[in-house]
Design a protein around this nucleic acid. Structure first.
Length: 574
RNA sequence: GCGCCCGUAGCUCAGCGGAUCAGAGCAUCUGACUUCGGAUCAGAGGGUCGGGGGUUCGAGUCCCUCCGGGCGCGCCA
C-alpha cells in the first residue's frame, strides 16, 4: 500500500500541483524566448502566457492560446506559430509529457499522469492553507462595505453588500493581502438629526404630547416607536424637560447608538465582523473636513461661487462641478467623503475597495475626481457596485421597495433561511447581475437547494471517514500511499477540480468576484457525488481503500476551505 | 435628456482579456437502492446567446446602433 517513493520523489511531490501551473508557464515562457532568439518569433514583446483547462481532457490537461495571440504580430498562420513554439518546448524528464498543436492553433499540454495524484498529498499537507498564495505580498488593503446610515435596521441589499465585502476581504487575505474590513458610520448629516427628531417626537407622544408630530421628511417605521418606548422605559420622562437643542442632541445620540448596536448585532449573526467602525462625525470635530476644503481651495481644485464652495471635479473627468460647502456653511456629504478617503490614504492603505449599492453609481466619477484633486491616484480607489436584489417567496417576487415601506430586513431573511443559506445565496450571482433571492428554495432542506447540496457533500465525506473508523480501517498517510489506483474517470475529474482550487481563488481575488467560489463549491460537490456513486471506498481491496480514503481526505480539506472562505459552515453531519 | 447595470434553455443565472463556449441549477420526462447517508446519481427534451451593422481567418465575448427591462441623475446621506 506504500508508494514507490524514494525521499527525492516525496520532495518532488510535496512541491506538487499548486506549482504545476507556474512550472508549466515558465516552461512555455522559456520556449517562447528561445523561439524568439532563434528568429522564429519576430516580435518586440512576448505576451503573457495564459493557461486554460480545456473543456474535455482529450485536449490535454492544460492549453494555451499564445500562438493565436501572436499570429498576427508574427505574420504567420497560428498553427505554424504554435508549431514553432512547440519545437522549443522541453519535454524530457519533466512534468510535461506531450504537446499537441490542435484546432486553429492551440497548444495542448499533456502532463505526466502522476501529476494529478501528486495533488492529494499536497492538499493534505497544506490543510487549512491549501489554496493560499502570496500575490498580495502583504500589501495593506482595505475593504469598506455596508456603511449604512444609523437610521434604521439593515435590509436585504445591505446583506448582499455584507456578503460580497466579507468574502472578498477573506479571498484577498488568502492571496496574501493584509486586509482590513471597515464600516463607515454616516452619523453626522441631516438624516441622523432627522432620525433623532423622529424618535424624540414619538417619545413625547408617548408622554401624552399631542402637539408634536413626526416630521414629514422624518422616519415613520414601527422601529422608531419601539426605540422611543425603549428610551422611555430606560430614561423615564426626564428627557422631556431638557432644553430643546440639548434634548434633540440627546435623542439623536441615543437613536444613533441604538441603531448602530442593532446593525452590529445583525452583522454578527450574519458572520460579518469589522476591524474598524469609522465615524463620520469624527471627521467633523477633528477638523479633517475643514482641512480638505482648505487644501482644495489652496491647490486650485475648489472655488467659491454663489455663496457655496465647489469641487472642480470637471477637471478630473466628472460631468459637473460638485458642491463641497453649502450656502449655509455646512459641508456636503462629498466633503466628508473626501476627508474620509484622505484619512484612509494617510492610514497607509496601499489600495482601497469600496463596495456600494446600485443607487450610488452616480458618485463614482465625483469621488474619483475628488481623490485625484487631493493628489491621490485614481486607481488607488476601486469602487465595486453591486446590483439590485429582489426576493421570491411563494412563487411571487417581492419588490422590497423602501418607498412602499415594505422593505425586508436582513434579520428576517436570516431568521427564515439561516445564516449559511443567506450568505450562499447572496453570493451565487456576479455583483453586476441583479439577484433574485428565492427564499423558498433557500429554506428547503433538500437536494434542490445548492447550499444543502454542497454542505451535504461535506457531511458525506465525514460520514465515509466515520464509517471507516467504525470498521477499524486505519486512515492512511497520503504522503506514504500509492495513489495510482485512482484511475476511474470520476476520480480523475475530482482530482482535476481539486487541483484548480488555488487558481480559482486567485482569479476570484484578481477579478474581485467572490461568486466564483460558490460556483466552484457546487462543481466540486457535484464531482464528489459522482465519485461516490461510481467508486465505492470501503470494502474494496486495501490498496484501493487507502487511495480513495486519501482522496476523500483531500476533498474534505478543499471543500472545507471553500466553505470557510464563504463563511458557510461545513457540517460533519446534517 | 444624460449615466450605470442587465437581455444566453420554460424560470433563475454562469460563461464575456475572441477559438477547445452553447453551459449550470431549478422545472419537466425517464431510469438507478440487500452495499460507505437515495438529502444522491444517470439519461432526455429544450436556446438562430434581444435585433441589425462593423472589426477579424474566427464574435454571447470587442466596436457602433436600435429595441426592451432595472436603477440612478438635490447645496440628502
Amino acid at each position: 500500500m506504500v508508494a514507490d517513493s524514494s525521499p527525492r520523489d516525496l520532495v518532488a511531490r510535496a512541491r506538487g500541483s499548486a506549482m504545476v501551473r507556474e512550472t508549466l508557464t515558465s516552461v512555455i515562457e522559456r520556449a517562447l524566448e528561445e523561439a524568439r532568439q532563434a528568429g522564429e518569433l519576430p516580435v518586440a514583446q512576448l505576451p503573457p502566457v495564459e493557461l486554460d483547462v480545456p473543456p474535455s481532457n482529450q485536449f490535454g490537461d492544460f492549453s494555451s492560446n499564445v500562438a493565436l495571440v501572436l499570429a498576427r504580430q508574427v505574420g504567420a498562420p497560428p498553427r505554424d506559430v504554435a508549431q514553432r513554439i512547440a519545437s522549443h518546448l522541453v519535454t524530457n524528464g519533466g512534468l510535461l509529457q506531450r504537446v499537441d498543436v490542435a484546432g486553429p492553433g492551440f497548444l495542448n499540454f499533456y502532463l505526466k499522469p502522476t501529476w494529478l495524484h501528486d495533488v492529494v498529498p499536497e492538499i493534505c499537507l497544506q490543510g487549512d492553507d491549501y489554496g493560499r498564495c502570496n500575490i498580495g505580498q502583504g500589501q495593506l488593503l482595505q475593504v469598506e462595505f455596508v456603511s449604512a446610515n444609523p437610521t434604521g435596521p439593515l435590509s436585504v441589499p445591505h446583506g448582499r453588500g455584507a456578503a460580497i465585502g466579507d468574502v472578498l476581504a477573506r479571498i484577498l487575505s488568502w492571496v496574501g493581502y493584509e486586509t482590513r474590513r471597515e464600516f463607515y458610520i454616516n452619523d453626522a448629516g441631516g438624516q441622523v438629526a432627522r432620525f433623532g427628531e423622529s424618535v424624540e417626537a414619538c417619545y413625547l407622544q408617548l408622554l401624552g404630547d399631542t402637539e408634536t408630530k413626526v416630521p414629514d421628511d422624518g422616519y415613520q417605521g414601527d422601529y422608531v416607536r419601539d426605540l422611543a418606548r425603549q428610551i422611555l422605559a430606560r430614561e423615564g420622562d426626564r428627557l422631556r424637560d431638557l432644553p430643546a437643542d440639548e434634548r434633540l442632541e440627546t435623542f439623536t445620540r441615543l437613536a444613533r447608538d441604538a441603531m448602530l448596536a442593532q446593525q452590529r448585532e445583525t452583522l454578527a449573526r450574519f458572520g460579518v465582523h469589522f476591524d474598524i467602525w469609522f465615524s463620520e462625525s469624527e471627521l467633523h470635530y477633528t477638523g479633517q473636513i475643514d482641512e480638505v476644503i482648505r487644501v482644495l481651495l489652496e491647490n486650485g481644485n475648489a472655488y467659491e461661487s454663489e455663496g457655496a464652495i465647489w469641487l472642480r471635479s470637471t477637471a478630473f473627468g466628472d460631468d459637473g462641478d460638485r458642491p463641497l460647502v453649502r450656502g449655509n456653511g455646512q459641508p456636503t456629504y462629498i466633503a466628508a467623503d473626501l476627508a474620509y478617503h484622505l484619512n484612509k490614504h494617510r492610514r497607509g492603505f496601499q489600495r482601497v475597495i469600496d463596495i456600494w449599492g446600485p443607487d450610488h453609481h452616480g458618485y463614482i466619477a465625483r469621488t474619483k475626481a475628488g481623490i485625484q484633486a487631493l493628489g491621490i491616484p485614481a486607481d488607488w480607489l476601486e469602487i465595486l457596485i453591486f446590483q439590485h436584489v429582489s426576493l421570491r417567496k411563494d412563487g411571487e417576487v417581492v419588490a422590497g421597495s423602501k418607498r412602499l415601506g415594505n422593505i425586508v430586513l436582513l434579520d428576517e431573511v436570516i431568521d427564515e433561511v439561516g445564516k449559511d443559506a443567506a450568505r450562499f445565496f447572496f453570493l451565487m450571482r456576479g455583483a453586476n447581475s441583479p439577484l433574485e433571492f428565492d427564499l423558498d428554495l433557500a429554506k428547503q432542506e433538500a437536494l434542490e437547494n445548492p447550499v444543502y447540496y454542497v454542505q451535504y457533500a461535506h457531511a458525506r465525506m465525514g460520514s465515509i471517514l466515520r464509517e471507516a473508523a467504525e470498521r477499524c480501517v486505519v486512515l492512511p498517510d497520503p504522503a506514504q500511499t500509492d495513489l495510482s489506483p485512482l484511475q476511474h474517470e470520476s476520480e480523475l475529474a475530482l482530482l482535476r477540480h481539486l487541483a484548480e482550487l488555488p487558481e480559482e481563488i486567485r482569479q476570484a481575488a484578481i477579478l474581485r468576484e467572490p461568486h466564483r467560489l460558490t460556483r466552484y463549491g457546487q462543481e466540486l460537490a457535484a464531482c464528489f457525488h459522482a465519485f461516490y456513486r461510481d467508486c465505492r471506498v470501503l470494502g474494496e481491496v486495501p490498496e484501493i481503500v487507502a487511495a480513495r480514503l486519501c482522496l476523500v481526505l483531500a476533498c474534505r480539506v478543499a471543500l472545507r476551505n471553500v466553505l470557510t472562505i464563504l463563511g458557510v459552515s461545513a457540517p460533519e453531519r446534517m
